[in-house]
Nucleic acid binder design. Sequence first.
RNA 1: GUGGAUGUAGCUCAGUUGGUUAGAGUGACGGAUUGUGGUUCCGAAGGUCGUGGGUUCGAGACCCAUCUUCCACC
Length: 376
Amino acid sequence: MKFTLQHKDPLSKARAAEIVTDHGVIHTPIFMPVGTAAAMKGIFHRDVKEEAKAQIILANTYHLYLRPGMDILEKAGGVHRFSTWEGPMLTDSGGFQVFSLADCRKLTEEGCHFRSHIDGSKHLFTPESVIDTERTIGADIMMAFDECPPGDAPRDYATKSLQLTERWLDRCFNRYHQTEPKYGHYQALFPIVQGCTYPDLRAHAAENVLQYKADGHAIGGLAVGEPTEVMYEMIEVVNAILPEDKPRYLMGVGTPSNILEGIERGVDMFDCVMPTRNGRNGQLFTWEGTINIRNKKWEDDFSPIDPSGTAFVDTLYSKAYLHHLVTCQEMLAAQIASLHNIAFYLRLVTAARQHIIAGDFKAWKDVAVTKLAKRL
RNA sequence: GUGGAUGUAGCUCAGUUGGUUAGAGUGACGGAUUGUGGUUCCGAAGGUCGUGGGUUCGAGACCCAUCUUCCACC
């Protein structure tokens, strides 16, 4: 995997770069749509690629491990061949899922015991087993197995959690170096910087991660309940330490404004369920602000969903029709809204990249953020 | 025609021996959702208790009449 820095914004930490993987090139800053079970809910991969212009998508280790299971993925020849997505992919380690299902987990030094949310069966994830699983899935970028503590974690818990995450990280990299890719393409492993909302813990975590000379670094454990300003502060602390010549990935973030603020602070990669999950619930993102298409006010608005949109759904369908589909809970509503939203998120980061290259990112961002936060 | 049931929020229904401001689910309305269980949560709105009399300090509840819908029997 090769990371090439192309442009740096003179007035901020924003940068434009290129990541080359064995499945293709990623231009950063980039947003990565989340396809948990190796599928973008309701959207054909063809449209994810051709209409939304996604360059890399996520899948989830926890979910693929439970269904269809690793025997099937191995027989399928990995997640790319199985799902027919031929572009770059990234797998989350399942750390977040294990911890977001807190009522059915038990944490030990060895790893995490948990019960399947599907059938209640018992399982154990360890740093080693997760790396093995991610090798079998075969994504271009694998994530380390970590603990993701809540946003309001007290300091003593945050400290212990970080120490465990760091011991697990060491075991992840040991296993990573002991194993080989199964399908003939390179797989990177990104460590995840934790530390909750404590600047010194974050700084320590960022320093600790450097020893692995990884292909890229992730910032995790943010947007989990802490104030937005605190999240930005943590990004600044961490990015001051993470190397400039490697991609930085802010996990699970966020709103369009969050993403632009992250880019300004030197983040290159983002993922979030917001465009797809909120789309299924009728929230549309636009340059002018967000639209709740369920609202009665749209029932007789026959203007296009997004006149400036580039996905075919944006100008083909009216707001009134989408309002009707959402009201009727038609599957098509979720499909249209999801495709619109991920297309918008990709246009958002593409615009950011163009403005970084043009040299006017900061001024553009300040104007864009105020509009994006509006509700229409 | 006779007998029996029924009527409470848009819809489906609770509502104790008569006792504070008549509740729930669902829908409709609005908000939330940040490394996805096609999810979940929150808020506010919504009532002439079929109608009219009566008994009572007090009636959604008891009595009378009447109307609605349903069932059974002639």
